[in-house]
């Protein structure tokens, strides 16, 4: 059974524990600027929205990569960047319509969420269950993926 991250803006308090956990897990530093999950703040609505890669089926980043540096992890479904193969051309960063694969100016490679190999640090760190890692079919990500597919794919 494939799992995916379920992000719930209603439950998010904007505590940024997820960003801390992600940056520590992936970059070895507590530095939200290096996190692959981001919490967006809507002051006027008093709301927070955690957001990261949906591991979408279309995989715009993967198809746009000219050197086969992005592949699908068959166990988790995550689209993963092979840092050895990535040349840093950034074509994936403009191809992804969700804006969730980004160029890292320090490593000269691209970064994205890889679901931490199936045990995402952000979900473990979230104190309010705004981020949970659950059966893919139950997640609201389907909704976002549908939005993407609705208008972006070549289907009728």
């Amino acid at each position: 059974m494939q799992k995916s991250l379920h992000l719930d803006a209603y439950k998010c308090t904007g505590c940024l524990q997820c960003e801390m956990a992600c940056s520590y897990e992936k970059e070895g530093a507590f530095n939200p600027a290096k996190s692959r999950i981001k919490v967006f703040t809507f002051h006027d609505l008093g709301r927070f929205s955690p957001y990261t890669c949906t591991q979408c089926a279309e995989a715009w980043c993967l198809h746009a990569c000219p050197v086969e540096a992005i592949t699908t992890n068959v166990a988790t479904g995550a689209k993963e960047v092979n840092e050895t193969l990535c040349v840093g051309c950034k074509v994936c960063t403009i191809s992804c319509p969700f804006g969730t694969i980004n160029y890292n100016t320090e490593t000269h490679k691209v970064d994205k969420c890889d679901l931490c190999g199936g045990d995402p640090a952000c979900a473990k760190a979230c104190p309010t269950e705004a981020i949970v890692y659950i059966d893919a079919e139950q997640t609201g990500y389907d909704k976002m993926q549908k939005y993407a597919q609705l208008n972006l794919t070549q289907g009728e």
């Binding site: 960063t93 403009i94 319509p97 804006g99 969730t100 694969i101 972006l152």
Partner: peptide
């Protein structure tokens, strides 16, 4: 800018 640049494509293509 290097963060979330792709969303510009998303906004354009989703009209």
């Amino acid at each position: 800018f290097t963060q979330h640049v792709g969303v510009l494509r998303g906004l354009i293509q989703n009209k």
